[in-house]
Design a binder for these strands. Structure first.
Ligand code: FES
Ligand code: FES
Lengths: 141, 141
DNA sequence: TCTAATCTTGACAAAATTAGTAGGGTATTA
DNA sequence: TAATACCCTACTAATTTTGTCAAGATTAGA
């Protein structure tokens, strides 16, 4: 499996923040309840996203989390990498554990897979996803 | 990470068998030594591939493993799925743990990723990889 | 000022998965 | 018939995932 719940939870939360961009902070509980994500776990994820610079926080009453940049300037890849680390098809690509180095054929296909994954996640912004959500709602109603 | 060592080891071994297709069986030790894969571990993987019908075995002296079909009839996807189970970007796609079901936007991107992965692994056969290996050797020498 | 709401931090723990190890059993053939 | 090689199951170690918990810091608003 490419992504764990970290990426899934974190991306959903980011998307929620993107949806509220410009409308004030969202607190942890509201997000964790809406998407049924354990509060303390989500907290850790949002903390990572903050350290990576994608999220800002406001402490104290009425505080919460908000996107640090415009939705169009945050890609899905940024969020996923902040949470899951490098997104890779096989870790031999990063740590060359293979031994065959330059003549490994298996490597070629792993690279192909990885390129196509990166191509998707690096070319989809949170704004793109908001647009898609709007389309979905239109179709549903 | 999309693939564990299971898929990596197993794909390498399968490729080795594909390379020797029609030239008699290869024994476990020769493969495990060549690619530096723990013997007993590889044994388990090859056993799975046998149960899935991609590999035949010959017991006893002079025995070993051989591909059960022509390299052109075995895809990378078949091997990987036999070893790793369903290849997926996020398991919410299989077990709909999400709760939003039909209106989940996050799901869309996971589906895109998965399609592009499947597109690659289902359209690459072991024979394709053998051709690539030959090209690589030509370039290297 | 007091207090409740909120994020902050770091340690801890349970569960699941991965990556092996080990060893006895079975079939084949030189 | 002995050596070779696959077969099978159980066990273990290591790692990662998926949380839980508690004490603290900050702030808005009564
Ligand atoms: S580099 Fe990944 S298997 Fe060779
Ligand atoms: S279906 Fe996967 S996050 Fe909604």
């Amino acid at each position: 499996m490419l992504l764990s719940t970290k990426g899934r939870y974190g991306l959903k939360a980011s998307l929620e923040l993107a949806f509220f961009y410009g409308k004030g902070p969202l607190n942890l509980k509201s997000i964790s309840e809406k998407y049924n994500i354990p509060e303390s776990y989500l907290e850790q994820l949002l903390s990572k996203l903050k350290k990576s610079g994608y999220i800002d926080t406001i402490r104290g009453k009425q505080g919460g989390y908000l996107l640090a940049k415009e939705p169009k300037d945050i890609t899905v890849g940024m969020i996923l990498r902040a949470l899951e680390g490098e997104i890779t098809s096989s870790d031999c690509l990063k740590n060359d554990k293979c031994g065959e180095e330059n003549t490994c054929v298996t490597r070629i296909i792993f690279e192909d897979i990885e390129k196509s994954i990166n191509n998707i996640i690096d070319n989809t912004t949170l704004e793109d996803m908001i647009h898609k959500r709007k389309q979905i709602y239109k179709e549903a109603h």
